[in-house]
C-alpha cells in the first residue's frame, strides 16, 4: 500500500490557534480516514514560501496544499476582494456562512481558482475586530484615531476619516504600546490576544469591521488528481466539513478568549455608538461597488450579496 505525503505550507504561525485547530484537525482527519495512506507534513508561516507566494506554489504544483488569506491571491482571483470581506456587510457569522455555502459563493470561488489548477475550500468565516487604547464614544473620537490596518480595510478606515497606516506585524505591539497608533486589528479576540495587544490596548471594539472567509485552504488540483478516487473523495469531504466545524468552533473560542481578556486583563467592550455605525456603513457601501468592477464574476457576486442583504432587511 502506497503512502503519499503532501507538503502543506501554513500562513499561520505555530502559536496561532488556527495552526493546531484548523491544520492539525485536517491532518488528523485525513490521515485517519485514509488509513495513513495520505500524510500531511505541516510547515509554519514563511517556512518554505512567502505567504503571498503560496497560491503560486500550489498552482504550480510545487506544494500540494497550503493555507492563505484570499487577499494573497488578489492578483489572480477577482473574487478575492469580496471573499476577504467587504466592510460592514454581514452582521452575523451565520449570514456569511449561508452566503458562502448555500447561495453558491463558495462554488464561484472554486470555479475561479480552478482556472489556476487550485482547489479552493474556505476554512472558516469569522469577524475582524479592532482593539483601541481609548474608547470610541463619538464620531470625533473615531476620526481622531490612528489605526494600524492593512489591505482593503486600510482604504476603508482612511476613507471613513480615521488615519489608517500600515505597520508590519512585528512592530505592531511596540507601536501600540508607545502610542504611534491608537488602535489595530489582527483577526479579532484570539488574534489580539496572541499578539499581546490587550496588554497595551484595553478596548475591544464591536461590531466587526467585516465578517468573511478570511482563511482558505488551497489544494493543488494536480496533486488531488493523482490520488485514487476514494482518497480524493475523503479529502474533499474533510474540507467541506472543515468549514462548518471550524466556523462554529472559532466563534466559541472567540467568546472564550474575549471573556478571558476581560477577566484577566481588564479589557472592556466598546460598542460603537449608533451614529458612528451608521456613518461607517454608509462609507462602506460606497466602496463595495469598486469590488464589483473587477470582473463579470465579481459583478455577479456583488449582485448576489446585495440581494441577500436586502432580503435580510439590511439595505
Amino acid at each position: 500500500q502506497e503512502t503519499v505525503t503532501w507538503k502543506v505550507q501554513s500562513h499561520w504561525p505555530g502559536s496561532s490557534s488556527s495552526y493546531t485547530d484548523s491544520l492539525g484537525r485536517l491532518k488528523r482527519v485525513i490521515e485517519e480516514r485514509t488509513d495513513g495512506r495520505l500524510k500531511l507534513q505541516l510547515f509554519e508561516a514563511g517556512a518554505l514560501f512567502k505567504a503571498k507566494d503560496t497560491f503560486d506554489a500550489v498552482s504550480r504544483g510545487i506544494l500540494e496544499m497550503g493555507t492563505i488569506s484570499p487577499s494573497y491571491a488578489q492578483d489572480k482571483m477577482t473574487l478575492a476582494g469580496i471573499a476577504s470581506g467587504l466592510p460592514f456587510a454581514f452582521r452575523h457569522v451565520w449570514e456569511a456562512a449561508y452566503f458562502h455555502q448555500n447561495m453558491g459563493f463558495e462554488q464561484m470561488l472554486r470555479d475561479e481558482a480552478a482556472k489556476y489548477g487550485v482547489y479552493w475550500a474556505t476554512d472558516k468565516v469569522y469577524p475582524t475586530e479592532m482593539v483601541v487604547k481609548k474608547p470610541i464614544k463619538s464620531w470625533d473620537d473615531f476620526t481622531s484615531l490612528k489605526i494600524r490596518s492593512s489591505g482593503a480595510l486600510q482604504t476603508f478606515l482612511t476613507e471613513a476619516g480615521a488615519a489608517a497606516s500600515y505597520i508590519p506585524g512585528s512592530e505592531l505591539y511596540s507601536a501600540l504600546d508607545s502610542g504611534i497608533v491608537d488602535g489595530a486589528h489582527w483577526g479579532a479576540a484570539q488574534g489580539a490576544y496572541s499578539m499581546g495587544l490587550y496588554e497595551v490596548a484595553k478596548y475591544h471594539v464591536k461590531p466587526a469591521l467585516n465578517i468573511a472567509g478570511t482563511d482558505v485552504i488551497i489544494v493543488s488540483q494536480k496533486a488531488l488528481d493523482k490520488l485514487p478516487e476514494d482518497m480524493q473523495k475523503i479529502v474533499k469531504q474533510a474540507l467541506d466539513e472543515q468549514f462548518w466545524v471550524r466556523t462554529n468552533e472559532y466563534q466559541y473560542k472567540e467568546r472564550v478568549t474575549l471573556a478571558k481578556a476581560i477577566a484577566e486583563q481588564g479589557v472592556q467592550i466598546n460598542t460603537l455608538p449608533d451614529d458612528v455605525q451608521a456613518k461607517l456603513v454608509k462609507t462602506a457601501q460606497g466602496m463595495w461597488d469598486e469590488e464589483g468592477k473587477r470582473s463579470e464574476e465579481a459583478k455577479k457576486a456583488l449582485g448576489m450579496l446585495k440581494e441577500f442583504l436586502g432580503n435580510l432587511g439590511y439595505l
Binding site: S144, K146, Q154, T155, T158, A163, A164, S165, Y166, I167, I180
Partner: peptide, 13 residues
C-alpha cells in the same frame, strides 16, 4: 503622522 496627525498610505510601502 506626528505633526499633522495624518499618516500617509504610501510612504512606508
Amino acid at each position: 503622522r506626528y505633526l499633522f496627525n495624518s499618516p500617509t498610505v504610501w510612504t512606508n510601502e
